[in-house]
């Protein structure tokens, strides 16, 4: 998705879309997390965390398998939040402490595509 728009009520999160946090695949989200600084991760985390309940209330009114583009972008932002939370809440660094190289731990989809 190349657009930048979010649903109107979440337009204050638009800067994070512009910074490239709305990503469609797990690999892209891992790469973004691991190439960000703790300052960037923390800023993103602090901004989106308080919005999670509001985001879910908004998205749950829409059909999951047919989300409008701007709503899908919003959901993708929360997936990046899951990544950022690991850095901010647990590791105090972008990547896993003493972890296996994520490039050697590759997603695949035996049951059809999961991004």
């Amino acid at each position: 998705m190349t657009g930048q728009k979010l649903p109107k009520s979440f337009s204050e999160l638009a800067p994070f879309v512009a910074q490239g946090w709305a990503l469609a695949t797990e690999r892209e989200r891992v790469a973004k997390r691991c190439s960000s600084t703790m300052e960037e991760l923390t800023e993103f985390y602090d901004a989106v965390l308080p919005k999670v309940d509001e985001i879910m209330t908004y998205l749950d009114a829409l059909p999951l398998n047919d989300l409008p583009e701007d709503a899908q972008r919003l959901l993708d932002l929360t997936f990046s939040l899951a990544e950022a939370s690991m850095s901010v809440e647990r590791y105090q660094q972008p990547g896993v402490v003493d972890g296996f190289d994520p490039e050697r731990f590759l997603p695949f989809s035996p049951f059809g595509q999961v991004p």
Partner: peptide, 8 residues
């Protein structure tokens, strides 16, 4: 998942 929040 039936909803976006479950998918999250």
């Amino acid at each position: 998942p039936k909803t976006a929040s479950e998918r999250f």
